[in-house]
Each structure stands twice: as structure tokens, then as C-alpha cells.
Amino acid sequence: MDTSIKKTEFTSVGTPPNSIKSILSTGTRPTQANAFSASVTFGWRALLKIKHVPEQLFDATAFPIMFTLMFTYLLGGAIAGSTGEYLQFLLPGIMAQTVVMITVYTGVAVNNDIRKGVFDRFRSLPIWQPSVLVGALLGDAARYTLASGIVISLGMILGFRPEGGAPGVLMAVLLLLVFSFSLSWIWTAIGFIARSQESLFFLSFVVLFPLTFASNIFVDPQTMPSWLEAFVEVNPVTFLVMAMRGLMHGAPEVEGIGITLAISAGLVAVFGPLTMYLFRRKK
């Protein structure tokens, strides 16, 4: 077929180019968004995604409820003699577990953005590049807060009474947010190299199940065989839960808090730069 025929075959319909021209000629160039406002804008994006895809909150709402109810009533009688007493012991830990388990979604979101091509658009913008990740982590902080709120509310209904009062609970939640935020960087880094969401989830199970179950969340480590106790005693989650229990029950443990903060700083120091390195060299 001749090209001359093709040219007349598809006559122009729809968008009149003049409307496009006027958009282009009126376009102004704003002063650039600073690092802070770019990060907040990406945080806003994360919240919009929650609004449009509310089912992604399932893990931040259903998990906490399931875990709290299940473990309190399943193990309470056997371990502490009564579910009420066990709840006092379990709740800070179960809060830590539910939030630590959902840190993987940070990496899933990054992985998704990369595969869908959204990431490249953001990377081609004249903005402070890490703001994409910082914004995503801000959005995650909202999810972590929601999950923590659900666990504590449910706990209160079931009879959890924190001796540290509201300030103690708030401090414990804050510490948990700091730790989870730091841990998220691992998943962000892996999100850059994982081939698929499935492999990311699988990896998270392999890492997070031992970290949360082989800890002091459910039982006193002294009841464990010595090899397991040795692992539990160096498990970062153990220190986190130790610190959270102390804060919630009005007996802050400086050691637990200090080590948790040190581990958090270490995670960011290692995985922050690693993530940014992967971010820059991504294909």
C-alpha cells in the first residue's frame, strides 16, 4: 500500500492540537520542590494508594486482630495460667510482631513501582532522588501506626492494662516505629533486586518468621533449649520487645531501648546507602 494512501486514510479526529499548543505556551516553570516537600508529596501518594486500594490495609488490620486473639486464647491458659495475665505479657510483643511482619510491604511497593515503570518517571524528575523512598516510608509509618493502634485498642478491650499509662504506650509505639522504619530499608533494598513480588514475600517469611517467633514474644527464653536461647538473646526483636514491655509497664529498660536504637541506626547506616546505590544503578 502506498504511503500516500495511508496519509489520507486516518483523518485527524479527537484532540485538537490547538488545545495542546495553548497548554504548552501557558506552562510556567515553578521553583523546584525541596527535599522535604517532595518527600511529603510521595507520602501523600502512599495515602492516596491506600484510599484507592483499601484491601492493602488488610495486613495492617486483620493480622493484628487475628494474632492478638489467636495467641492470647490459644496459649494464654497453658503458658501463664490465665489469658488475662498472658495478655499483659504478650501484647507488647504481638504488637511488635504484627508491625515487623508488614515491613515487607515497603519492598513490595518499590518492586511494583519498578516493574510498572512509575519509578523511572520519578527518577527522571529534577527532585531530591531519595524523596521517593522517604515518602513511601512515611506512608508506611501511617500503616504501622494504624496496626499498633488496632492492637492496643483490642488489647484494652480484652483487659490489657499498661502500668506505664498512655505515655509509656506512646513511647513503646514510637520505638516500634523507629525500628520498623529502619528495618524497612532492608526490604526496599531487596525490592530493587527481587525478580518478583513472590520471591520477596518468600524471603520475608524466611527471615521474619524466625525473627519474630524465635524471640521473647511468646514465652520466656529461659524455658528454651540452650542453642535456641542463645539465638533468642541476640535477636534484635528480643531487644525491641524487652524495651517495649518495659515502657508499657512503667519500668523502662535502658539496655533494651539503647540496643534497639543502636540496631536501628545500624540498619539505616548499612541499608540506607545500599538502597541508594541500587536506586541509582537500577538498569
Binding site: 501518594r45 492516596l48 494508594k49 484507592h52 486500594v53 513501582d113 510498572k116 515503570g117 512509575v118 523511572d120 518517571r121 527522571s124
Partner: peptide, 8 residues
């Protein structure tokens, strides 16, 4: 490859 966010 440089796309928009499908969820928004």
C-alpha cells in the same frame, strides 16, 4: 517504561 501510577 516511564509511566504513571495505575492505582491513582
Amino acid at each position: 517504561f516511564a509511566s504513571v501510577d495505575e492505582d491513582l
